[in-house]
Amino acid sequence: MQLYNKLSAKERAALIEEAGKDRMTISFYQYANIGNPQIFRDHLFINWDQLDVLGRIYVAHEGINAQLSVPAENFNAFKAHLESISFLNDVRLNIAVEQDNKSFLKLKVKVRNKILADGLNDSTFDVTNIGKHLGAKEFNEMIADENTVCVDMRNHYESEIGHFKGAITPDVDTFRDSLDIIEADLEKDKEGKNLVMYCTGGIRCEKASAYYKHKGFKNVFQLEGGIIEYTRQVKEEGLENQFLGKNFVFDHRLAEEISSDIISNCHQCGEPCDTHTNCENMACHLLFIQCKSCAEKMNNCCSDDCKSIIALSFEEQKELRKGAFASNKIYKKGRSENLKFKK
């Protein structure tokens, strides 16, 4: 029985193009006690592959974290399958603000130690003892209160292109980096102020709210459904949008516009820009912000060195990469001395 992808991203993109059918980009998460993540993983793959679901899904003993796309015509069948799983019945689905049929091109369901890496090894930490959820209207009212501290629980490259007005945006590379830094910075506010957090879809705040309650914070709140759900409620209820710029997303789109404000700049020339890209040199693949002018001038590269490398033949580039240790460090998120205008 097939339990893995057989098609390449290029082949899948061609099939999507040929089908000409609309797809829906969706994300959701749920913390739960899963006895055998591997069996659960295989169950999901078998059923979702039949529905032409594509995406990146992590399964662990602590639950599931999913970002995926599904043909619009199969959405009801997909939802029915979710509802057949006890702990996913009535799970909140975050529908993307902007749709793209090619947001995902493969179905990857992976078993992980945790659905969200946090670097924590605390057996007394209860991830289900979470803070209070806030809808968009309550969130707007709460962050307008001078007794509130609003914290962005995302990484620096996410908040750089978009964030809520007045929010604290930690200069961190990963979620695990942010936990201790925020706790130290807000030590004096543990009992006296409201701690309000937000992230893309809610999963980081869910865990962070439980962690900060565990660490002694008295008034802990989180934006339910994150920026994605906030945007939907603002539109449906006619609320004032307090989010500036774009919401970074972890698929081929890289971002979706929430407001027309451009709050970041091209990392190469300094002009206003909020378009992320990856360096064309596959041995670099650096994520950075690049305007159209610089993209044309630099052949979609982050530096002159990378520009020189992609001018070589495929075989020459492959030879240069041979023997090089490939780690996560080559996928640096906007951290490079070559980026002259990185804030």
Rank of each mutant, 00 (worst) to 15 (best):
H43F: 12
G192P: 01
N278D: 08
I85D: 03
G202A: 06
D185H: 12
Q290G: 04
R335D: 12
N65Y: 08
S264C: 07
Q67H: 10
N74M: 12
L3V: 08
G323H: 09
D118C: 04
V109N: 06
D251M: 06
L51M: 15
I203P: 01
G225H: 10
F139R: 07
P71K: 08
N101R: 09
L93C: 10
K106V: 06
D189E: 13
R253C: 11
S260W: 03
L44D: 00
N113P: 02
G216E: 05
V109S: 08
C291W: 05
A32V: 05
G238H: 03
R253A: 07
P170W: 09
Q50W: 01
S260H: 10
K137V: 01
V97K: 05
T128L: 14
W48H: 03
K108M: 05
E18Q: 15
E337F: 10
I57Y: 06
F75V: 07
N265R: 13
E315I: 07
L88P: 00
F87P: 05
A324L: 12
I130N: 00
N76R: 14
I203G: 00
E17G: 12
L339Y: 10
G119L: 03
C205P: 04
I203R: 08
I161T: 05
Q290K: 12
S159H: 11
E206S: 10
L223E: 08
R56C: 04
D189N: 11
F40R: 07
C205Q: 06
D180A: 12
E17M: 01
L82A: 02
Q222L: 14
K10M: 08
R232L: 03
